[in-house]
Amino acid sequence: MVKVFDLGFMLTAIPDVLKYLPVTILISFGSSLIGLVVAFIVALIRYFEVPVLSPLCKLYISFIRGTPTLVQLFIVYYGIPIVLVAANQRFGTNINVSGLPKIIYVLFAFALNTGAYMSETIRSAITSVDAGQWEACYSLNMNTRQAVTRIVIPQALTVALPSLGNSWISVMKDTSLAFSIGLVELLSAARLIGARASRYLEVYIDAALMYWGVCIVMEIVLSLLEKRMRKYEGRIGA
């Protein structure tokens, strides 16, 4: 009789699936970090309403929000090689287009994706910083860069941290889309392992538990980090 659910297989497959967890973590951390840099730049351009760049950033955010992540991944995956080939022809450069590892496309696509969302988070967090903080900086003759980096961003980050954490969790789950361009990460590894035994449900549950586990660990880390960053907010007196 065929087993409806093979618990033994589910457990024995765990080490094999687990081997690909680092790929998922690498993509989610890597693209979140690059995305965070993008997000800061975009947020500051939008906050200071830099001419030309600010409307361009708005367009970028609108595009990312209005298109599925999978479509963005496809556009990056099929678009970048064409751009690079054209660049090679035009400028005589010699970039090995077919040699680019898939993970580069994935990192790039997810960084652009999460950068757009995080930039809105950071922009609203910067806006939430009391105008008096800026005035205090200026009255002490600090310049805008010093005010931003020393006073405003640290306070804004504290406000933004929970949302940034959510963005990271979204990216972490979206990394499963990378299997659609053939990158072997957690989900596609699970599928391959499942295919060998023709048992899919077991490995998909393995994968789900791993995504979930990483997420829980990250939530704990984030809440500790938040507590640490909010240490200056403890209230006594008025």
Binding site: G132, Q133, S139, N141, E233
Partner: peptide
Amino acid sequence: LRAQSSMVFQHYHLFHNKT
């Protein structure tokens, strides 16, 4: 000009993230 003076504010405006 700002180097000539300094200001004390009604609502203090101490940097929240600094001791």
